[in-house]
């Protein structure tokens, strides 16, 4: 079991390698011919932060405009976001502002966002410099990494750094753990109290019964 469950969302233009990043992280493989994501896909993996088992539950979204509304509904309840662009396609970098705006307006304000310049293996086709990416991240208060879903370069780090940041925020007491809209859940032992307090229709005596149960 896990101590915490963090929900992530991966966003960015279509074709930047979001699904590949997820697959590389969860399955440790690269599948070059990948179906276009239709809607939202899902992956999960256990990691360890500060010696605690943490489950990462990751939403991989479709980048296309037509799915934007579906995607938006997943922002809520995400603790972390991976905002991905393709270093070989400048347009994907240019769209970052739009994505960031979306994220800021649909997610809770304390969502941890990491900017990822993917396909770093295609150095010869690079269209966005590392410095540009870094600069954008800095301006917007994001973590920044260049990765390659193909070679797995920095993939692990991207997910882990985000998790660390979220964990730090929890330690600082930035979140109400019991509020699921933050995309963080406590592990099984606390599930009862967790469920009782989040139950909207729950009346006082019911909640008490739940607590005293075991």
């Amino acid at each position: 079991m896990y101590s915490f469950l963090f929900k992530y969302i991966i966003i960015g233009d279509t074709g930047v390698g979001k699904s590949c990043l997820l697959l590389q992280f969860t399955d440790k493989r690269f599948q070059p011919v990948h179906d276009l994501t239709i809607g939202v896909e899902f992956g999960a993996r256990m990691v360890t932060i500060d010696n605690k088992p943490i489950k990462l539950q990751i939403w991989d979204t479709a980048g296309q405009e037509s799915f934007r509304s579906i995607t938006r509904s997943y922002y809520r309840g995400s603790a972390g976001a991976l905002l991905v662009y393709d270093i070989t396609r400048r347009d994907t970098f240019n769209h970052l502002t739009c994505w960031l705006k979306d994220a800021r307006s649909y997610a809770h304000s304390n969502m941890t966002i990491i900017l990822i310049g993917n396909k770093s293996d295609l150095e010869q086709k690079r269209a966005v410099t590392y410095e540009e990416g870094e600069q954008f991240a800095k301006e917007n208060g994001l973590i920044f990494l260049e990765t390659s879903a193909k070679t797995a370069f920095n993939v692990e780090e991207a997910f882990l750094q985000t998790a660390k940041k979220i964990y730090e925020k929890i330690q600082k007491g930035d979140f109400d753990i019991n509020n699921e809209t933050f995309g963080i859940k406590l592990g099984a032992p606390q599930s009862k109290t967790d469920a009782s307090s989040s139950g909207t229709g729950g009346t006082g005596d019911k909640a008490q019964g739940g607590c005293c149960g075991k």
Binding site: G39, E41, I70
Partner: peptide
């Protein structure tokens, strides 16, 4: 879209 659920809420969906 078609949404899949689990006990915690939304799972994946297909648009």
């Amino acid at each position: 879209a078609i949404y899949f659920y689990n006990i915690d809420g939304r799972g994946p969906c297909f648009g």
